[in-house]
Structures are given as structure tokens and as C-alpha cells.
């Protein structure tokens, strides 16, 4: 993987999240507090598409961040500071950690897509 692509993905995804947050709060200004108003907002195609893109951006951003943390702190070198024995399992621990947050991210994505689109 090219480092520049990761750099761009992280920055662009954060801009999406920021734009979405501003847009969402500005939408609330015209929200009248009724169920109908809420339904109108959340059932619009703009809301659904924008939310989907933002959720994907959040997951991408989180994946890059957590992957960076894992490759910094869950290596044989860093775990070796805690225990020599633990250092032998560094790859296993790091891979398990990555599988865990990818799994949780996918569950989060599926739940959000179901809530928004179905």
C-alpha cells in the first residue's frame, strides 16, 4: 500500500465527517421536533447517501488510525517491554486486534445500513 494514498484517505475521510456534522446540525435548525419532521429528514435520499458515505469514511478513518496504533504498539519490540514471553505472540496479538476491529466495524456498517435503508 502506498503511504500517500493512506495519507489522502485519512484526510479526505475526516473532511467528509466534518462536512456531514456541519450539514446535520444545520438540518436540525429547520427541524420542528415532530416525528413527521424527523421522518422527512431521515427518509430523504440526500440524508441516506450522505450518511452512508460518512459511515464508510468514519470506518476508513478509524481503520487507518487503529492499524497505525497496532503496528506501533503491538509489535514484538513494544510488547517485549512488558514481557519477553508476550513478545513471541506479538504477531498473533496484533492480527487478532486487527480482525476484531474490522469485525466490529463491519457489524457497525451493516447495522447502520439496515437502519438507514430498510
Amino acid at each position: 500500500m502506498n503511504g500517500s494514498i493512506i495519507w489522502y484517505l485519512q484526510r479526505i475521510s475526516s473532511l467528509f465527517v466534518l462536512t456531514y456534522t456541519i450539514w446535520l446540525f444545520s438540518s436540525f435548525r429547520s427541524f420542528d421536533g415532530t416525528f413527521l419532521g424527523w421522518d422527512l429528514l431521515t427518509s430523504s435520499i440526500v440524508f441516506r447517501l450522505f450518511t452512508t458515505i460518512t459511515i464508510i469514511s468514519i470506518l476508513m478513518h478509524a481503520f487507518i488510525g487503529l492499524w497505525t496504533v497496532g503496528t506501533d504498539y503491538l509489535t514484538s519490540r513494544t510488547l517485549g517491554f512488558l514481557s519477553y514471553r508476550l513478545a513471541n505472540y506479538a504477531d498473533l496479538i496484533r492480527n487478532s486486534y486487527q480482525i476484531l476491529f474490522v469485525f466490529l466495524g463491519l457489524i457497525f456498517l451493516i447495522i447502520v445500513l439496515i437502519v438507514i435503508w430498510i
Binding site: M1, N2, G3, S4, I6, W7, T71, D72
Partner: peptide, 9 residues
């Protein structure tokens, strides 16, 4: 040095 580690770390 274009990989994710060499510079971007």
C-alpha cells in the same frame, strides 16, 4: 520511501 512506514510514520 513511499510506503506507509518510511516517511509517513
Amino acid at each position: 520511501i513511499s510506503d506507509p512506514f518510511s516517511v509517513y510514520r
